[in-house]
Write a protein that binds this DNA or RNA. Structure first.
Length: 154
DNA sequence: GCCAACGTTGGC
DNA sequence: GCCAACGTTGGC
């Protein structure tokens, strides 16, 4: 089992939206960065735990936890010419982008803010705290997962 | 295959 | 809305 952090803009899709979905489950689509794609396609597995991170909003930080309930499959939005995520270079035979499905596990009472995360001296490997890191899907070590989880619940 | 121009991300 | 830091594109 592995741990991840997924970023989303709550104005587009936030943890509140996940909470109101049927089965509290939603496809994680629209990832259009190759490194993030590789994680989704190759490494994100069924049952993996995910920090749901809110970016580009008033309270930036980790809003809760989700779980992978369906592993890697071709992101349907790449084939949909009406979608913002349409990719004319992708084909059914040769998909370029991948999705997974996530299910809500818990919403934190309070968002663990980026500021708090950065202020913690033990959080050093996480991509978030490294300068210029913009990946929307990133791995989290078990150690840092536990630390962040405890911080969020404190 | 280099690299300048351009586009995007995301915190502030 | 600004802008730094990246990623991608495309001409050569």
């Amino acid at each position: 089992m592995q741990y991840w952090l997924f970023k989303s803009e709550p104005d587009v899709f936030g943890i509140e939206d996940l909470a109101t979905r049927p089965q509290q489950t939603e496809p994680w689509d629209g990832v259009r960065n190759y490194q993030a794609r590789n994680y989704l396609r190759d490494d994100v597995g069924l049952g993996d735990q995910v920090f749901f991170y809110h970016s580009s909003c008033k309270t930036v930080g980790i809003a809760g936890v989700a779980e992978i309930v369906r592993a890697s499959y071709p992101d349907p939005s790449q084939f949909d010419s009406a979608s913002d995520y349409y990719d004319p270079k992708a084909s059914e035979e040769k998909p370029r982008w991948y999705s997974v499905d996530v299910k809500l596990v818990e919403r934190f009472n309070k968002v663990l803010t980026l500021k708090e995360i950065k202020a913690n001296p033990h959080i050093t490997e996480l991509g978030l705290v490294k300068k210029g890191h913009r990946l929307s899907v990133m791995p989290v070590s078990q150690t840092e997962w536990q630390l962040l989880y405890d911080l969020a619940k404190a």
